[in-house]
Design a protein around this nucleic acid. Structure first.
Lengths: 128, 128
DNA sequence: CTTGACCTTGTAGCCACTACAAGGTGCATA
DNA sequence: TATGCACCTTGTAGTGGCTACAAGGTCAAG
């Protein structure tokens, strides 16, 4: 499988895959005679893992940890759980922030009387 | 007021204020005899406006537009409203995404039996 | 034998800061 | 008067997680 095919199978782009390789998230794959990267099912699975974790909002650093933990199936699951739980708390915090922000924004927009900027509630709120 | 004092009054840092100046969000202030930036209440108000807008999640580009709109109080408020409404929709979209993500993450963490990595639900979910 | 899709490397850009380094200023204290 | 120290100055480079080129190489179909 060439890089473009792998990209299509994982909803990524060739650029992103090469970026993951550069940053050590993916190992350098073997090459074809024409110097093209040549991927198999191992790399496909690893990239899918990465993409799922990234879609769930894990940072690259967390993904790196999760990958190395998943490489050793006999280990205790504690470390995995702690990374995920920490991330969940972080997501909860962000949700709270975003909800507050939405409320403020909503009030601002609702109060706007669509008149002149001089009496605009939005500008007023921002001006303090 | 020197840059540090302005930073403290606005919950910013001197670095960020200089960055705003570099990128044209703030104008170059007058200087003292010793070449220190010298701010007054106009700059304080402008920076407060910027910080409030940024805290509400507006991008620098949006802040730039809002600033120039607020500079002309006789204009119609429509443009302001449209920027804010667009941003509100964007925040709503992000909230939706984050809520979905939180649900998935929650299930993952709840299903973890705290055993070995080999049977870890979290790793399983990520592995697909 | 040419076209065109794909691949290669390398470099630079995005956003909104943040973090230095190396040196200048200004005020209180010994 | 000297010194220490907090603060300021400019300039440059780094962060995360990609994304966007440019300039050239490879390969299968027509």
């Amino acid at each position: 499988m060439k890089i473009g095919a792998l990209a299509r199978k994982t909803g990524t782009t060739a650029e992103t895959i090469r970026y993951y390789e550069r940053t050590g998230l993916l190992e350098e794959p073997p090459r074809t005679a024409g110097n093209y990267r040549d991927y198999g099912s191992t790399e496909l699975a690893r990239l899918r893992f990465i993409r799922r974790a990234r879609d769930l909002g894990f940072t690259m650093a967390e993904v790196r940890q999760l990958l190395s933990l998943s490489d050793d199936p006999s280990q205790s699951c504690e470390a995995v759980d702690s990374i995920a739980s920490l991330h969940l708390r972080e997501v909860d915090r962000k949700l709270g922030d975003l909800r507050k922000l939405r409320t403020e924004l909503r009030h601002m927009v609702d109060d706007c009387q669509h008149g002149a900027v001089g009496e605009c509630r939005i500008i007023e709120v921002l001006s303090g």
